[in-house]
Design a protein around this nucleic acid. Sequence first.
DNA 1: GCCGTTTTCGGCCCGACTGTTTTCAGTCG
Length: 710
Amino acid sequence: MRFWRRPHGDSTLGSVDNAAVAAVFAEMGDLLAIVGGDTYRSRAFRNTARVIEGLRAPLKDLRMLGQLTSVPGLGAGSIERVHQILQTGTCPEHQRLLARLPRGLQALLQVRGLGPRHARLAWEHLGVTSLEHLELAARSGLLARVPGIGPLTVERVLRDLDGRKQAPPARLLLSEAIVLGDALVAWMLDDPHTIKAEQTGSARRRRETVGDLDVLVASTRPALSSTRFTAFPGVREVLMAGDGRASVILDNGVQADLRLVAAENWGAGQHYFTGSKAHNIAMRLRANAHKLALSEVGVWERKLRGRGRGEDNRQLARRLSPCTDEHDVFAALGLPFIPPELREGEGEIEAAIAGRLPSLVEDQDLIGETHLRARTASDALQLAHALGRRGRRWAIWVRPAVELVEHEARRRFRQAARRIGSTTGVDILCGVEVGIDLNGAMVATNGTLETLGSNVLDDICAAVDVVLGDVSVPPDVTVDRGLATARVLSAISSGRFHGLMRLQGRRLPNAPAGLDIDMRMVLLAAARQRVFVEVSGEPDRLDLDARGCRVATETGALLAISGRPQDNQHLGQGRFALWQARRGWVTAAATVNALPLAQLRTHLRLSLVGSDVDDVVHTGDHELGTAVDDSSDDSSDDGSDDSSDDSSDDSSDDPLFLPHRRQELRVRLAAFLHGESDPELLGVLLKRGDNTLLSAFAILNGLAQDGSDG
DNA sequence: GCCGTTTTCGGCCCGACTGTTTTCAGTCG
Ligand SMILES: Nc1nc2c(ncn2[C@H]2C[C@H](O)[C@@H](COP(=O)(O)OP(=O)(O)OP(=O)(O)O)O2)c(=O)[nH]1
Ligand SMILES: [Mg+2]
Ligand SMILES: [Mg+2]
């Protein structure tokens, strides 16, 4: 389609993203575990990998802004290595380990039941360096003769290797995991010894994808419950089964774990099995700091500082609380209840200690549904009835622009909305979904290759209450971070959109990252322009994701928690959007859905404020074009002529633009774009026009072509 | 390697199951 043509050439500058840096730390952690020695050092590296994966900004940005030192879990050593890895993709420690051990050894750890010790033994005795080698060694009988590895271990290894040939390990959608978990829970409840049963693990934390099914059962007869579990009709293989826990593989290749607790330890069991692992460890550390010990059987007094292997807390001390209710776990540690969605080990315990836990948005806060996707008026009517029963008082019915080309179609749309509102008591606002081209301008999304004229678009926008911009681009169009950010900033400041959807354009479970974009910058701009951003409940999208939601809460951007039901069958998916928002620390006040209709209407007017639209769009396009062209041009320039383009700007003679202050300017622009106040810089930017964010962005992109990363 | 309203040194989560171990190490959730 014409409007997907890129305004500039491809820039394929390879860059080291957070995931790549985290992967190096994870590899170092794994290799250190195989080498043996200090296990804490290995664990520290793995923890650093986890911390980096959870960051909400690129390491590059954090480095430039000097914020790496304030990341908990990153010490001086890791920061040094982050610098090195960002520049070269590796670091001396990494190289030392690779010189000592073959790289393929890390892959052996993927095999279930085979850990660092066995990997090392297989390598030392048999020279095994890959999964293929491992399989040969196992089948030939050599592996079973390695001291410390026996025939049963080998059999298990082969079963796992066979299993991953049939179905490579994959994560489930949350929606799928809940369906499967419900079946398992029902199976366990249909047993006389089951007192309680519940799905826990990442599904209870509402992670967007789920690795396995974790079921907690309180039982009067644990051994019998364990047998019941392994007799579930979908079980292909029993990995282990005791009277405390059991693990199986189901026919679809998914693992299911059972944990059994006494009824009086239900709350402690819930807390343990809900995780996350990082949250559990952090909670247990806090317990220890208070001379307590926390586990899935309650909270205990702790007499000794350290604890030898095999020593049991219960023999060492007195139990304070069995934690029958999950609240007891937190109460025993002097903490308020932390909702499962927040338990990722990403600052929730610190927030709880400080009394700064957010009061998360709840279903009952949502008095409006921000995206109804009915294709017919009768579907919309049914939906409105159902939404009314769920306590919604208004809804936005969104239709694609192509369906509203004719004046008559728009009239019928509005008429149907009014009629549905008066019959159901749920007020219906009319919305249109439009596309956004690579310059950030509005276009019609149209599957039939016709582009709508701008006058038609204007007519459509004028006829509806809400204009929703679809940020996503076709899969075959590549958009780099700079362009992705620029076009969305431009769209936001155009004043033509009330809201944006599919900001990341991601698909679960295989493309969870979606488009690379400067989320903080975009959401800050959205907050200022009062453009809302949708969190979609479509189970394979959940776009904006939880991480983005948390950035939204930090920047003050308003979110629309959108179920996007097409008909009553899809009504339930709204909860997925709500859950992701909750995972992003979102409060009711940060959602469109909590606004009474009158306030919503006021808000909608505000997003178009300053809507001398032409003016804004023109400025935006101009700045953007410069920025984009600069950043994509051959960046091997020696820099001798790079500033000539900017010399016509009024502000370029400001002292800030002197060559020796380049790095300072870069840092200050980046900080400004991420929400820090800088009155002097603001003054300079204002000389260039009203849209200071776009100006700052354009200048920063111009500086970026110097090639250095700072 | 990271960290600090009891520590700047000396800790670092804790328990269940399995196999090869003759008393417990390895692996996992
Ligand atoms: N204390 C402690 N708890 C753990 C550890 N590993 C796992 N758990 C707890 C917390 C986890 O959420 C829970 C279930 O383990 P899983 O391996 O299934 O992880 P989880 O469900 O969180 O993620 P997943 O989607 O399955 O990858 O068990 C651990 O090393 N220590
Ligand atoms: Mg799990
Ligand atoms: Mg599990």
